[in-house]
Amino acid sequence: MKMIHDRGRQEYEKAVQEIAVEESSEQTQEVTQKSKVHVVNLPWSFSVADIKNVFGECGSVKSVEIVKQKNGRNRGFAFITMASEEEASAVVEKFDSYELSGRIIRVAFAKRLKKPSPTDPPVGETRHKLFVSNLAWKVRSSHLREFFSTSSNPVSTRVVFDSPSGRSVGYGFVSFATKEEAEAAISALNGKELLDRPVRLKFSEKNAIESVSEPEEADKAEGQPEEP
């Protein structure tokens, strides 16, 4: 049973990273999560109607979200929102470690996903970050680190890749411990060639959230390498 539970927990932890739940306010988030549970190791054949029928024994099931694979196949667990915190507690108490169609299911309160603070930089990067454009397609993070290490001590280096194709998009980011080090790197290396292309350096305009800063800065970057 422990093996089933551990495997189910691993699947759950992986899936919650893929689910974006948007709430209208912080207060709404707290209420929703207190009445929401996650169920692991459900029978693959279970539908929303089946889940409502089973867990409806403890009260009113407001919504059911079955987590599925990209091909649409049921992954064996779901998020269930009850009408109240008391009903959600009843679901956990009654159905955790409950045998359902030959499977031992596990039930627990759903964790509220913490949204990153708009002031927190991406992991491993600092606020003193440079936007590096006009990179050759072959440039990798190791090339950037070697390039900048000739005149400075970068904290982190990163080349950005296109998700669908896996190819470099021609720009990246380099972080430093202090603003002075970043300024010195611009003075020493802006316009210098890396793999036969002159790199362009400037301070990253929005260091906090990658999903916001990268598209905007990429749109402003000039002279990106043409596709081979």
Rank of each mutant, 00 (worst) to 15 (best):
36 K>V: 10
84 S>P: 11
114 K>L: 02
27 Q>S: 07
128 H>D: 09
112 R>V: 13
144 L>V: 07
145 R>E: 10
52 K>V: 05
122 P>D: 14
39 V>K: 04
33 Q>N: 12
88 A>G: 08
78 A>E: 01
107 V>N: 11
89 S>L: 11
87 E>A: 10
51 I>F: 04
42 L>F: 15
56 G>A: 06
132 V>L: 03
135 L>E: 01
93 E>V: 14
119 T>D: 12
143 H>A: 05
96 D>V: 07
40 V>L: 15
89 S>G: 13
58 C>I: 09
50 D>G: 01
92 V>C: 03
125 E>V: 07
93 E>Q: 15
31 V>M: 10
107 V>S: 14
144 L>W: 08
102 G>I: 02
142 S>G: 08
72 G>P: 03
80 I>S: 13
28 T>K: 08
113 L>I: 15
35 S>H: 00
46 F>H: 05
70 K>R: 04
136 A>W: 02
134 N>T: 07
80 I>G: 12
137 W>V: 05
106 R>A: 11
134 N>D: 13
40 V>I: 15
94 K>F: 13
100 L>K: 10
117 S>V: 09
152 S>N: 15
121 P>T: 06
87 E>R: 05
43 P>W: 01
60 S>T: 04
40 V>Q: 09
32 T>G: 01
79 F>W: 00
94 K>C: 13
80 I>Q: 14
81 T>L: 08
62 K>E: 14
109 F>C: 02
135 L>H: 01
38 H>N: 12
69 Q>A: 07
75 R>V: 02
92 V>K: 04
108 A>C: 09
59 G>K: 01
119 T>M: 08
112 R>I: 11
88 A>Q: 04
54 V>L: 14
84 S>N: 08
91 V>H: 05
130 L>D: 04
114 K>C: 00
24 S>V: 08
99 E>V: 07
119 T>C: 08
72 G>Y: 04
37 V>I: 12
44 W>C: 09
65 E>D: 00
71 N>Q: 01
59 G>L: 02
87 E>K: 08
111 K>Y: 07
74 N>A: 06
34 K>G: 15
49 A>H: 06
95 F>R: 09
111 K>L: 10
104 I>Y: 12
54 V>E: 11
132 V>N: 00
84 S>A: 10
105 I>V: 09
